[in-house]
Design a protein around this nucleic acid. Structure first.
Length: 481
RNA sequence: GGCCCCAUCGUCUAACGGUUAGGACGUCGGGUUUUCAUCCCGGAAAUAGGGGUUCGAUUCCCCUUGGGGUCACCA
């Protein structure tokens, strides 16, 4: 088998929907193989099933690849020497190759109606045997006029082949069958088209999902009939849903890659997470930049078993990536996720808010919930005190007094900045002889009305004296009722 | 049902045939002059079962079990 020195890999989706995580991983790995060999990454659109076309799917997929930073060198919108890159635009190629098979006696017209084939199939099912079309191969097939499907005439035999991920694979002759290569609508099937295209586009590595592994022997049979050399093949194990059994599906949540991006997951984090779903470099490294992946990735490092998509781990990965980016960059990326009223504040205020959220943020769309109190007075929620493990033991009177003392101290504080606030709070601690958990929790609840928030002094300094004093008073009033 | 593939903590995974089976997420428990969703420390948690081979199997072989894929004029 010839091993091309420069890798040419492809991602070949059919435009029937959005790009989901599993396809994104396949695309990522193909991209990595191309990039680490200084090769080419090709996007080919497999639109041979007219019925399943989805309007806009191609654009959606392209947008997803771009968002992840998986740039391709050739594709429908990037014409190059091996185009066109949509299968619907390559019909004459498939026809040419099909006719050569026909001429060589390795293809024939399928004279049966779908109904007849169905009855063959049902019969096989009753007999609990796999359906093989070649058991019904017509002795005198009619001339192929394009109105009937064209079938490959197989030569059953056992196969043994190598898969970069799965290792050595083999099957017996019983899996080889006559499959349709040109449908009655004139379009090729995937089984035929991809082989022609991979050859004509000089693809070196075919990286795809495991749903195709059972068809590989048939492809090998076709490669032989066509006298084409076989590319390197790599089969990706499936990405599983939360139950750990079935393949990840739409039911399991938002699986459109663009949805994750819209929720405020960083492309870098998504790439790192998806790459480590089934792959790892043998060390304990958990997070990878794209550069590191290009350097370290290997198809051989991919596990053979399926991997469950664990969103909580994705959140953790994303949180780590968020913490790594400089505040200015974070601000640029996340400003749109701030609450509506953020537009009434200036950049420095909003940036300060994001700054103190950064270390605890997991994804951007939770920013509203985490930062709302920075932008508006939330209604006093008495349950925050009533349910607090320490505060609930205190008399309301005592709490009011503590708040009044805090109010007084902060009201007289000048200048009003992080440093002075911190020391004022410490003074307060000493004066009241209360534990921090009591005093600070009380003040924190008063000024945020939220179950969690950034550091108290920091929060106070961002909110400013006016808002803080107003909110403390609101809490006092609520307690008095 | 035939054929093919897969199998380490709940999850992602590491371990030239020799390790107290490691790391990470999650979880649980502590800790830090606030909360906790950050941070630090700690705990619980796995080689599916049975046979071989071997001085010694997570690792190699076989069987069983479990799971997945496929058997389309879908890809």
């Amino acid at each position: 088998m010839s091993q091309p020195t420069t890798a040419r890999t492809r991602f070949a989706p059919s435009p029937t929907g959005y790009l989901h995580v599993g396809a994104a991983r396949t695309a990522l790995f193909a991209w990595l193989v191309a990039r680490q060999n200084n090769g080419s990454f090709v996007l080919r659109i497999e639109d041979t099933d007219q019925k399943r076309q989805v309007e806009g799917a191609e654009q959606h997929i392209i947008a997803s690849l771009q968002a992840l930073g998986l740039d391709y060198d050739e594709g429908p919108d990037k014409p190059s020497d091996y185009g066109p890159y949509r299968q619907s635009e390559r019909l004459n190629q498939y026809k040419k190759w099909a006719e050569s098979l026909l001429a060589a006696g390795r293809a024939y017209a399928d004279p049966y109606t779908p109904r007849q084939i169905n009855s063959f199939r049902e019969q096989a099912q009753v007999e609990r045997k796999p359906f093989l079309f070649r058991n019904h191969r017509p002795t005198n097939p009619p001339e192929w006029d394009g109105s009937m499907p064209l079938r490959f005439k197989s030569e059953p035999k056992p196969y043994k082949w190598h898969d970069e991920v799965m290792g050595s694979l083999s099957t017996g002759p019983e899996v080889i069958d006559d499959f349709i290569i040109i449908k009655s609508d004139g379009f090729p099937t995937y089984n035929f088209a991809h082989i022609i295209d991979d050859y004509e586009m000089a693809i070196s590595h075919v990286i795809r999902g495991q749903e195709f592994i059972a068809s590989v022997p048939n492809y090998l049979n076709l490669y032989e009939a066509l006298k084409l050399s076989v590319p390197i093949m790599a089969t990706m194990p499936p990405i599983l849903g939360p139950d750990g059994k079935k393949k990840l599906s739409k039911r399991d949540g938002a699986k459109d890659l663009l949805d994750y991006l819209a929720d405020g997951y960083l492309p870098e984090a998504l790439v790192s997470f998806i790459a480590t779903l089934g792959w790892n470099d043998g060390t304990t490294q958990e997070l990878f930049t794209k550069r590191e992946l290009i350097e370290k990735f290997s198809l051989k490092g991919i596990g053979k078993g399926g991997a469950v998509f664990d969103e909580s781990r994705l959140r953790w990965v994303n949180g780590r990536f968020i913490r790594q980016i400089p505040l200015d960059e974070l601000y640029q990326k996340a400003v749109g996720y701030l609450p509506e009223k953020a537009s009434e504040q200036d950049d420095s205020y909003n940036k300060a808010v994001l700054g103190c959220l950064q270390e605890r943020l997991k994804y951007f769309s939770e920013i509203v919930e985490l930062s709302l109190f920075f932008y508006e007075d939330l209604p006093v929620d008495i349950s925050l005190i009533a349910n607090h493990k320490k505060l609930k033991k205190y008399e309301t009177e005592t709490l009011i007094k503590l708040l009044e003392k805090a109010h007084e101290r902060l009201a007289n504080l000048e200048p009003f900045n992080l440093e002075t606030i911190s020391s004022a709070l410490n003074q307060l601690l000493a004066d009241t002889e209360e534990k921090p958990v009591v005093l600070f929790s009380l003040i924190r609840i008063a000024i945020t009305q939220a179950p969690a928030s950034p550091g108290l002094a920091e929060t106070i300094s961002i909110l400013g004296k006016t808002a803080v004093l107003r909110r403390i008073n609101q809490q006092i009033e609520a307690l008095k009722v």
